[in-house]
């Protein structure tokens, strides 16, 4: 018997015939249709506060000031990755900073670039999380991972209250896309239990909240 068949047979013998099985007769009822909560001011404020809690930098700006905020967020970066689909109107470049597009760059190529700018798909207020689905404006996963500085632009109308709403939205969109949930910069407490921000991911995370 193949391993597959044997494991499935073991499961079936452990559980008995479907009709007699414990648990609930029907699968758990579907969640109520997702109702994205209003993006009230309080919600956005909570998002900003919670993102900042992780020691990420958070900047709020008006829609016509995004490019400025992005430029500031890039700091002294000498080169920045700009994923395909990142809106040109949002791209503010520091003096002398080289803009790089992703043309089949290797991981080592990416490692030589200082920063990356991306948009995001969802912001989660209660947990201070941004979710990337790596679509237009966000780039493949490696782009927002290897450079040491990540400037991420989130619109206030993308901010939802909690994990429930976020999972619902992502599920409706396309849950089979690669998804990266980011809650602050990477962190470790391995040295004397001191929290250190930034191990392998971008050590600086700047979240620009627009609107």
């Amino acid at each position: 018997m193949s391993a597959r068949d044997e494991i499935l047979a073991r499961v079936r013998s452990a559980l008995g015939p479907p009709a007699t099985r414990a648990g609930h007769a029907e699968p758990a009822p579907a969640d109520p249709a997702p109702v994205p909560p209003p993006t009230g001011e309080a919600l956005v404020e909570l998002f900003v506060e919670r993102v900042a809690d992780y020691r990420a930098e958070v900047v709020r700006c008006a829609p016509d000031r995004v490019a400025d905020a992005v430029r500031d967020g890039l700091g002294a970066s000498a080169s920045v990755l700009v994923p395909e689909g990142f809106p040109a109107s949002m791209l503010g470049m520091p003096e002398g900073c080289l803009s790089v597009s992703d043309e089949a760059l290797s991981a080592s190529d990416l490692d030589r670039i200082d920063a990356v700018v991306t948009t995001a798909s969802v912001g989660i207020a209660t947990t201070g999380t941004i979710v990337l689905d790596h679509g237009a404006g966000q780039g493949r996963r490696a782009l927002s991972l290897v450079p040491d500085r990540h400037v991420c632009v989130v619109r206030t109308d993308q901010v939802v209250a909690g994990v429930t709403a976020a999972v619902a939205l992502l599920g409706v969109a396309d849950p089979t896309r690669p998804l990266t949930w980011i809650s602050g910069p990477s962190a470790t407490s391995d040295i004397e239990l001191d929290r250190v921000e930034g191990v392998h991911g971008p050590r600086t995370l700047v979240v620009v909240v627009v609107g």
Binding site: D53, T180, W181, S183, G184
Partner: peptide
């Protein structure tokens, strides 16, 4: 509230 990174 949430761990730094979750990959799917």
């Amino acid at each position: 509230r949430m761990n730094p990174y979750t990959s799917m």
